[in-house]
């Protein structure tokens, strides 16, 4: 059967469920909100341009996450080459509207800061597992790693976060 041309509505129907995940992964890597927004638009535009192809993919979501990863890593690489420093000033724009969450605000932001210092691969693994709750096979596919490597990276990242939080907790260092 010949694939028919996808309409905008059909396309949006496909990408809507995971566009936030694309954005969050981009933000995890690029840190700045604006840059993550630009990256997300770029990725979605690329998907739209390849709309005839994406109908053939079984898992458009996984494909899009891989695309996001590659796009952001390229961006970081070129940025490093230009010797530019990342600007990050938007930890606050999480949904910390509830009073209960405000109490945590400081220590929660501290977790964001800790995650920023993780190596890129560990950042992505934590993002995809602890925040997006993908299973290990999906993450392995998205990041082009094997299952064990994903678990190892995840374990390292979690232990680093725990250690830094324990230190903060014990000494009140912020």
């Amino acid at each position: 059967m010949k694939p028919k041309i996808m309409t905008q509505t059909e396309f949006l129907h496909i990408v809507m469920p995971f566009k936030d995940k694309v954005f969050r992964l981009a933000k995890r890597l690029l840190v700045s909100r604006e840059e993550a927004e630009d990256a997300t638009q770029e990725v979605l535009l690329k998907l739209w341009k390849n709309k005839t192809k994406i109908q053939e993919y079984k898992n458009v979501e996984a494909f899009s996450m891989t695309m996001t990863k590659n796009f952001c890593l390229d961006k970081l690489k070129s940025k490093q080459a230009q010797n530019l420093k990342l600007v990050h000033s938007n930890y606050q724009d999480n949904n910390t509207s509830l009073q209960k969450q405000l109490e945590f605000s400081d220590s929660v932001n501290w977790v964001a800061k800790i995650m920023e210092d993780l190596p890129e691969q560990q950042k992505m693994v934590v993002q995809l597992r602890d925040i997006e709750q993908y299973d290990f096979d999906e993450i392995a596919k998205m990041l082009d790693m094997n299952n064990t490597a994903v678990r190892v990276a995840l374990s390292r990242a979690r232990k680093t976060i725990r250690e830094k939080l324990t230190k903060t907790h014990n000494y009140g260092v912020k």
């Binding site: 954005f23 927004e37 979605l44 999480n94 949904n95 977790v111 997006e132 976060i161």
Partner: peptide, 22 residues
């Protein structure tokens, strides 16, 4: 000490892409 970590994960999960799809 685990509390802020899991709280952060839950909060991060809620973040939305608010720009238009081009």
């Amino acid at each position: 000490m685990y509390k802020p970590m899991f709280a952060y994960f839950s909060v991060s999960q809620e973040e939305k892409f608010t720009k238009d799809v081009p």
